[in-house]
Design a protein around this nucleic acid. Structure first.
Lengths: 350, 350
DNA sequence: CTGAAAGCGCTTACAG
DNA sequence: CTGAAAGCGCTTACAG
């Protein structure tokens, strides 16, 4: 009885294999009786391949449970299946909805979304861009047009197709899907004017580019009506929140007892303001009208329900992703800028 | 004068190059006067390399602006720098905070986060897992322990380190960071009992596993107190929202006029309930006490401020990411399960 | 419409 | 502590 039998059949050649055990394109090709490159083309649906062979390859891939290796594909083609999406913040529901729409559109097309949060910091955006661009993404989605020169340069140099979210512009060769923040702000301000308000405040947090564009819309409307008063602007760089909204609302009433309307730059601020009014027993809209921006979850549940501007962020995400898809595929893009507009939603707070 | 001068210097050899123009590891190696493999080891800080050479390589990489190609690295090492994170929903702020913490911990360690949203659908989770696992992620983070057999199998077969989020268990070999949803629910229910409430309702949406674990905690507490009444449970599979909370609150009051407290399974529901109470002029907490779960943004701003359970989701994200980092590096993990607990936050609604 | 060859930019596994 | 060779699994660029 051998305790340590020497194998009668020699072991496999001192394997240098580092294979993962998964089926490879070559496995599929030999199973289908074609070359690797034909299998590759058949699977990608590229170029003309004999339909009979395509079917053979399909079946073989199916049977072997073949899943293409994204790393190999990226290395060989110098382009990955990743799309990097840079958004300022995740704590603003707006961007969450934007992101979900993007992902929902990109995923079925075979692209993975790499999300990066910039926290409104140009330096963070630069770092993310540097890191993500190293991955040679197939496409890039960024928020707004304001960024560092270095960032602009990196994007341009990379040659990666890029679509800008949330704002509108008309610079040729620059792609974007959004709305005019200025026009929307002007619209809701004019709504307050039409309701007879004259002492209208603009209360803002975060002070990112879009918040400042809204400030411009607010100013334009009030200047046209001849009742712009810079004193009625409260601009706080703190990130927006319901708590901040309540706090700034109180501050506003103390500093300007004669104010008869407030335009909050974002709904979370406005919701906090509405709650503060309830706490302070300030009648809305009788004593003071309140309006917000974005129509976030809960605004319709407030007491009174909040008048606001509905922004089409989901549609922005979808359209931007579709535009990017076209750019990545080298297809023609009918228009480089899409303005999706906005909607004034009048509820009981104004 | 030649209109079409033929070049005196021959063009570069009919290049088969498909290079990207970026510096490669070989460029760095020759600039530093070492072999590619030594440069590779020096840059990764792996194995012992002569400190002098390490420095040379560092300088060369710096000067050439070398950025390693993740695709090549993934292909050669059969492991990417991606970590896939599967969460149920992005519309619940809880998961957004969890995700941010994860990303914040993983990014400095050089890992990219790939987020996937399952919408609480096992089939969607299976599809995401299949797709993400094809990318050979370095690690995996999933929410909870409930999933399809296929999903469990895929995770196990992949050999990819995996940490489970949000719940606690003690299955050996299974890694997790979370809290006992049952204990937390029991605690807030006991709080209501201590305040003298006896007709305590449980109002829930979504009905995901954790919501049902909370239901068990609620039942346990009430059974112990001898006042469990299954009639007082309203279980609605609809996703939670403030609007749903308001709606279910009204329904509850109509069906059970004698109810003296409500435990909402999530704060958004509770906030909606509180607003509905205000609208209906139902005194909280005098007529009815209201408590929530998670302590989401705005709960402290409500009227009255909401009593709730604070869950440490950011800390869960951080700890889980750290645990995963250790697993990915093959470092020992002191304990496979971390229970981060919870905190009862008593405000004026109870 | 199809294929043989080369190469993408790294790391593994062996040697020394 | 260092390196030459091979290979990861695809796609590109040429030919035919």
């Amino acid at each position: 009885m051998e305790r340590f039998p020497s194998p009668s059949i020699p072991p496999f050649p001192a394997a240098r294999r580092r294979a993962t055990g998964r089926a490879t394109l070559n496995d599929v090709a030999s199973a289908a009786g074609v070359s690797a490159i034909t299998a590759s083309r058949a699977l990608r649906g590229a170029r003309a391949v004999d339909p009979v062979l395509v079917e053979k390859v399909r079946v073989a891939a199916q049977q072997l449970g073949y899943v293409p290796d994204p790393a190999a594909r990226a290395l060989a083609s110098a382009r990955s299946s990743h799309v990097a999406v840079l958004i300022p913040l995740l704590s603003n529901a707006l961007f969450v909805e934007l992101l979900e729409a993007v992902q929902h559109t990109l995923a079925p097309a075979g692209f993975q979304t790499l999300m990066g949060v910039t926290h409104y910091q140009p330096a963070e955006e630069d770092a993310l861009l540097r890191s993500y661009l190293a991955h040679r993404p197939a496409g890039l989605l960024v928020t707004g047009f304001d960024r560092s020169d270095a960032a602009h340069q990196m994007i341009a140099d990379s040659g990666v197709p890029c679509v800008h979210l949330m704002e509108t512009v008309s610079t040729p060769g620059v792609y974007g899907v959004g709305l005019s923040q200025l026009d929307a702000a002007r619209t809701v301000t004019e709504h307050l004017l039409q309701r007879g308000r004259r002492r209208i405040a603009y209360v803002a947090g975060q002070l990112d580019p879009r918040v400042m564009q809204r400030a411009e819309g607010y100013r334009a409307a009030l200047r046209d009506a001849g009742c712009y008063d810079p004193q009625l602007e409260i601009l706080d760089p703190t990130p927006t929140s319901m708590a901040l909204g309540g706090h700034l609302f109180e501050e506003l009433l103390q500093r300007h007892p004669d104010v008869d309307a407030v335009f909050f730059c974002n709904d979370d601020l406005a919701q906090g303001g509405l709650l503060a009014a309830l706490r302070l027993q300030v009648a809305v809209p009788q004593r003071i009208a309140v309006v917000g921006f974005n129509d976030l979850a809960g605004s319709d549940q407030m007491l009174p329900p909040l008048t606001t501007i509905r922004t089409p962020r989901a549609e922005i995400g979808t359209q931007a992703a579709k535009m990017l898809l076209a750019l990545m595929r080298g297809e023609p893009v009918p228009q480089s800028t899409i303005d999706l507009g906005f909607e004034l939603v009048v509820r009981q707070s104004s």
